[in-house]
Computed example of a mutant assay.
Amino acid sequence: MPAEQTSLPSHAAVDRVIAALAAEGVEARVVWFDDAVTTAQLAADALGVEVGQIANSLVFTLDDEPILVLTSGGHRVDTEWLGEQLGGRIGRASKEVVKSATGQVIGGVAPLGHPAPVRTFVDTDLAAYDEVWAAAGHAKTVFPTTYDELVRITRGTPTAVEPR
């Protein structure tokens, strides 16, 4: 696993994530990789962890409102089913909507550090792991957290993202 590099590269979106973590009382332990880890499998391989421990940050629209779904890298979101559970229709957000809602680009979207709060849903499958990893605002960054902490810092709603 790469060493934590808290004093190395800087990036505005990562700096906002670090500040947001600090505001929630969390010490940021951002890991920078040499190459982008834009998929759950790439991140898991780089970290030497199970793919299910990766908290994918996926921006969708619920009707016309951007929402953030933090899902375990071990499976996909069933958008039709989840939309029914949430009382609306879920669609993929465009890269412009992702950037506008989060201040970050696809591949590095963090669960926090956004210009304004984004309604967030946290996959209950992530609770199976003692440690989960989320993007830190850039495609070359991640940070460790726990399921409970992830729910707390995002003010997210624990939610299944596919039928059981």
Rank of each mutant, 00 (worst) to 15 (best):
T102R: 00
D123L: 00
V97I: 14
V69S: 11
D64R: 14
D15E: 14
L8C: 09
W81E: 15
T120V: 00
L8T: 12
P158R: 07
T145H: 04
A40R: 01
T38Y: 07
V37K: 09
A40E: 02
E84S: 14
T6S: 13
L150A: 00
V109G: 07
S100F: 09
S57N: 01
P111D: 02
Q53S: 10
G74F: 11
L82P: 15
G73F: 03
A44C: 03
P158F: 03
D64T: 07
V37D: 04
P66A: 13
A136K: 00
A160D: 11
F60I: 02
V118K: 07
G48Q: 04
L82C: 14
V69H: 05
Q104F: 03
R152Q: 05
T38M: 10
W32S: 12
A93Y: 07
V98Y: 02
H114D: 03
A110Y: 01
A12H: 14
L47A: 08
D148A: 04
R76C: 06
D130V: 05
T124E: 08
L62G: 03
D125H: 04
G88K: 00
A101E: 00
W133F: 03
R92C: 09
V31S: 07
D15R: 11
V151E: 06
V98Q: 02
V59I: 11
A40I: 03
D64H: 08
N56K: 07
K99Q: 13
P2V: 08
